[in-house]
Every structure is written in C-alpha cells, then in structure tokens.
Amino acid sequence: MIKVKDLQKSFGSLAVLKGITTEIREGEVVCVIGPSGSGKSTFLRCLNLLEIPDGGQIYFDSEEITDFQNVDINRIRAEMGMVFQRFNLFPHKNVVENICLAPLKVRKCSRAEAEAKAYDLLQKVGLEDKALAFPDKLSGGQQQRVAIARALAMEPKVMLFDEPTSALDPEMIKEVLDVIKELAKDGMTMVVVSHEMGFAREVADRVLFMDDGIIVEENTPDHIFSHPQNERTKLFLSKIL
C-alpha cells in the first residue's frame, strides 16, 4: 500500500533520514521503534508529506506522491489518518465538531451524515457521552481517543500514529492502546511510532528498528525482541526492556 524508496531528509546540515526503503502492505500493522533522534517521527511525517522529503520516492497505492508537481497532496492526506503525540484537537470546537470538520469541508458530506458518522466513531472509542464537551474538559487519554476518531472520520486507508501515548499519564495509556488494538483487529493498515514495546510485540505484524536515520533491522516482533540480529538493536533493547 505504501512503498518507500531511498527516502532522505535533512534539517539544515543535519541528515535525519539517510535512505529509508521499506513497504507497508495492506492490513499490516508496522511498529517503528528506535532511540530518540533516530528519525522515526520524521519518517512517519514524510509518509503524509507533513515533512517534504529531500530525496527518494514514496508510492501510495502505486501512485508516486513525491511527484509534487502532479500530485494533489490534500487528496493523499485525506486518505491517510494521522494521530499526534500531543493530540492537536481544535480547542475552539467541541468533540463532534472536531470530528465533523474535515468530512464537512474536505469530503463535502452533509451535516447529518457527518454527525451520524461522528457519533458512531465516538461509540467505537467509548466517548459518546463526551460528544458536546470541549477538548480542554477531557483527560489526555480521552483527547487522544477523540483524535483517533477524528482521523477515522475521513475513512482513511492507512493510519499513522506518531508516539500516540508518549504524552499520556501512565493510567491512560491502556485506554488509547486498546482503541488502536481494536483498529488492528478490524484490519486497518497502520504505522505506529511507539515506545510501548509490549504493544509492539502484541499487535505489530512487523517491527522496524531505526537508528541514526536508517532502518537497522526489520522483522516480526518475535524475532526483533527475542532474537535481535544487529548489535545496535540488541543494545537498544537491552536498555529499555
């Protein structure tokens, strides 16, 4: 579904991605792990072009989206949901309005249709009673579940998660991970940058270990966590497990 070829990205003189090549298949859950500064988030943000790559190609459904002259970035982004570390809900809109905004403006849905969909999604993430609340009245875990519902409202083909639980208090991590697990069960294609190794082990079909701007090792969670091949992977895992 997503093919990445020799992806490169620098910030000034700092090379963050030094040639990433990989593929995300339909229905697959891929977890990206690695030390901070390894380029995981930048890699994820390149996939929906929130960061513009300096080199290499990204194909989405066999269309090259890095062909910036001929591709409508907004159309591509509408097909890729993204969930951020810091939720980024719209503070001036209540929960339902947060979820409905993009379907109304981008998909041109009718209000009735968008709201019906929003309530369905809120039920899915267990927050139908918070429909009319404003984001600042919700806990971090609740905000992140709304953010997931907001992304899902666009009916994306793939979901990108950028450290979705890193800004959460420990007792709220589970409620968010449970929602993501549900999605995995439903067959959603997902790329998850995460520090939750337990989650990666349980849910991922494949784990990418990144360090210093490259994918050092990629394999099933079992292989990565139980029999890491690369020294850097071993070192990283020994520090955090």
Binding site: N48, L50, F84, N88, F90
Partner: peptide, 18 residues
C-alpha cells in the same frame, strides 16, 4: 497558534485556506 493545529488540519486533507 501552536503549529500542531496547522499540522492536524493539513493531515486531515484540509487545504491551507480551509
């Protein structure tokens, strides 16, 4: 306004003017 607001909106496929 926090940059995350712009990113969230753009990630949903909204155009810059929207």
């Amino acid at each position: 306004i926090d940059r995350g607001q712009l990113e969230a909106a753009r990630s949903l496929g909204m155009t810059y003017p929207q």
